[in-house]
Design a protein around this nucleic acid. Structure first.
Length: 288
DNA sequence: AATCTTGTCAACCGCGTCCCA
DNA sequence: ATGGGACGCGGTTGACAAGAT
């Protein structure tokens, strides 16, 4: 039992009416869960009173939504989820709740924490602002491709072997990454794969917003039958379905057709991508 | 073994928006 | 039209754990 409300210098009556702060106890959790099971959620202030909790309605709501709700997912974010967060953040910025809506079982708080602890850490190491265009470009050029590869590695052993044999960029385990020039077609090859997730149909402009990632998706060939992606257009012209099962990457097939001039990796053509710095220091997915 | 540093994440806070009387 | 309460969101804090020295 930790941090209870400070009762120093207060009468017993005052203590009784004191609102509790700090970590929730098991008893409080049980009270809240049972109350919501019987009466439903909402009307948090009255709920707190009726349930006998010495907490603010706000605190009850937060505890329920961020921790107790049955469909909350626990554990590390998958590469798929990380990729989703990166992409959605590039579109919406710090709209955590909006981003969370597209990650079932994940809370805005969790996503926000992920961004602050993992993503901003990378930005700090780069000495660039995490909300700057440079960092966004770095995410697009390096992190997303790396995540895509990670997804590939976890979803398909066969394809993973193929990727390794191709000495694909983004694999932080590959020492040859160090020589990757900025804006290299290989760098973006996985990004173009990103668009190929649309399955048998070419990625349409309404499945990826025009201001997302690159202005015009590359032309991609038809995907193998194993690629079972279906991006679902939302009312805001975004996609939602990230069913990564059966995900398949073809790391080299789109290189030739990908117009790298549309992809602003050139900004990286300076100190931090030209040498080993980027690949040595950043996007080390083992640490994600 | 002790201390320090760093990372994680639950929880709080302030503010803006919505809704209703 | 407006004032107040409820709610939701994003920023921040602080406790704790794990790792490094």
């Amino acid at each position: 039992m930790a941090a209870v409300a400070n009762s120093v210098g207060r009468s017993p009556n005052e203590e009784d009416s004191e609102l509790r702060k700090g970590p929730w106890t098991l008893d409080e959790d049980t009270l809240l869960i049972h109350y919501i099971a019987n009466h439903g959620e909402g009307h948090w202030n009255s709920l707190a009173k009726c349930a006998g909790l010495k907490r603010t309605g706000k605190s009850c709501r937060l505890r329920w939504l961020n921790y107790l709700k049955p469909d909350i997912k626990r554990g590390n974010l998958t590469p798929q989820e990380q990729l989703m967060i990166l992409e959605l953040h590039s579109k919406w910025g710090n709209r955590w709740s909006k981003i969370a809506q597209h990650l079932p079982g994940r809370t805005d708080n969790e996503i926000k924490n992920y961004w602050r602890t993992r993503v901003q850490k990378q930005a700090r190491q780069l000495n660039i602002e995490s909300n700057s265009k440079r960092f966004l470009d770095a995410v697009r050029c390096f992190w997303m491709p790396t995540l895509l590869q990670k997804m590939e590695q976890t979803s398909s052993r066969t394809s993973s072997d193929y990727l390794t044999s191709q000495n694909s960029v983004g694999a932080t385990v590959s020492p040859t990454n160090n020589s990757v020039p900025s804006g290299s077609p290989k760098v973006v090859s996985h990004v173009s794969d990103y668009y190929s997730l649309a399955g048998n149909s070419s990625p349409s402009h309404n499945s990826l917003s025009s201001d997302s990632l690159i202005s015009q998706p590359p032309q991609v060939p038809e995907q193998p039958a194993s690629s079972s992606y279906a991006f679902e257009a939302l009312d805001d012209n975004y996609y939602v379905d990230y069913d990564m099962e059966g995900f398949s990457l073809d790391p080299v097939s789109e290189i030739a057709s990908f117009d790298t001039s549309q992809f602003d990796c050139q900004m990286a053509g300076n100190y931090w991508t030209s040498g080993s710095y980027m690949t040595d220091t950043l996007w080390n997915m083992e640490g994600m």
